[in-house]
Design a protein around this nucleic acid. Sequence first.
RNA 1: GGAGAGGUGGCAGAGUGGUCGAAUGCACUGGUCUUGAAAACCAGCGGUCCUUUAUCGGUCCCGUGGGUUCGAAUCCCACCCUCUCCGCCA
Length: 424
Amino acid sequence: MLDPQLLRSDLKQVATALTKRNMTLDVATIQQLEDKRKAIQVKTEELQALRNSKSKEIGQIKSKGEDAQSVMDEVAAIKSQLDESAKELDEIQHSLNEIVSGIPNIPHTSVPNGSTEDDNEEVRRWGEPKQFDFEAKDHVDLGEALGLIDFETASKITSSRFVVMHGGIAKLHRALIQFMLDMHGNEHGYSEVNVPYLVNAESCFGTGQLPKFEEDLFHIKEHGLYLIPTAEVPVTNTARDEILDSEELPKKYVCHSPCFRSEAGSYGKDTRGMIRQHQFEKVEMVQLVKPETSYTALEELTGHAENILKKLDLPYRVVALCGGDLGFSAAKTYDIEVWLPGQNKYREVSSCSNFESFQARRMKARWRNPETNKPELLHTLNGSGLAVGRTLIAVMENHQDKDGNITIPEPLRPYMNNQTVITR
RNA sequence: GGAGAGGUGGCAGAGUGGUCGAAUGCACUGGUCUUGAAAACCAGCGGUCCUUUAUCGGUCCCGUGGGUUCGAAUCCCACCCUCUCCGCCA
């Protein structure tokens, strides 16, 4: 959520900043509602103040044993006015709220202009795509030839966009998770958390999935809960309605979880293989920081995700998302794209974002600034470190040999009983 | 799932219709005292929103949402959560 003060004082400037997202803000409607809100809120609160003081008066009169009827009649007259005014205020605030909570974050000044992913800006590359002296297979062919990846059974027991993994691939998947958790925990200073995979609506609102993107979520209606689309939701919401001490910051969490996405609207996209699933696993990094440090934290966090790819010897590039490709809550995002020989292109394995105070304002996640001694909004960040399924694909495709075996990257071997290769 | 108890400020804990945003204690902050510290004493000490350049002032907040009332922490209704016992269960 954007700062309501900013919307009041500088609505036009906000509208201009949002054009970077190819978004037009309905300035006239907001301005009109805001003017109305101001007038009615002042009126309502004045009436409330009057009612309160008169009611107190009644108490005083009665305690003296005198007759308070005339004052009571006065308050009764105020009451109907107040009810009407309060109702009107409620309606205006409601519609204003609806509009404001649907406005995306303002892109940081460093965010490139553009409307689609083609306009994203490549920041750097690491590693060289490997030249194979045979025709590289994709993970589907590799996995099925090994007999270790099975989409058919998954669709029998559940539906499309799910997968069953066996043996060496299942172990490789698990090894990746443990390797990532250990790297971030031991080398990068994150503390590991394990959180619920079902969350309530307040949490989804806090991180920005609700109200606008409900269709992307799996919803358990009879319990009013949602399956998490990313650990970002439960982990960031640990700070909801909290005021943290300055000394506890920054808070850095790493969390492994499954992620559930309905993928509504992506029919026909990435239907082959494990690239786009309804359920996948991810190791997520979340940081809660003081505002002045959030952009250095973003660089640092992105670097932490990159380190995983470096250790696994997987070529990648980092792109800065352009305004049009930026997610709803993010002020700035770097995507990390890993090289996939099977597709002959770079594909996203991580998305690292600074949300500034956008999520924090929605969830009232604050810290006490010792300089002012007042609660102030935190800045929140998160990034995949990394998407496990896609990293698995990358390992398979980049480290395959001509016989279709997979060489296990050195750092994963301790997690796989020192196995060096996955064969049929 | 059944039965019972309970949800009040950072914590503990009082408060059952009217000067209660809330006693008291602890914690915390500042001051006095002290060579320093402790103790003692004095003072301060929640959040939200509105108005305002700012102050002042005002609104709202006692689990959440409704209701009754001139007036609700206090009464009524619904829901949520916690604890204890029983049942079921990884």
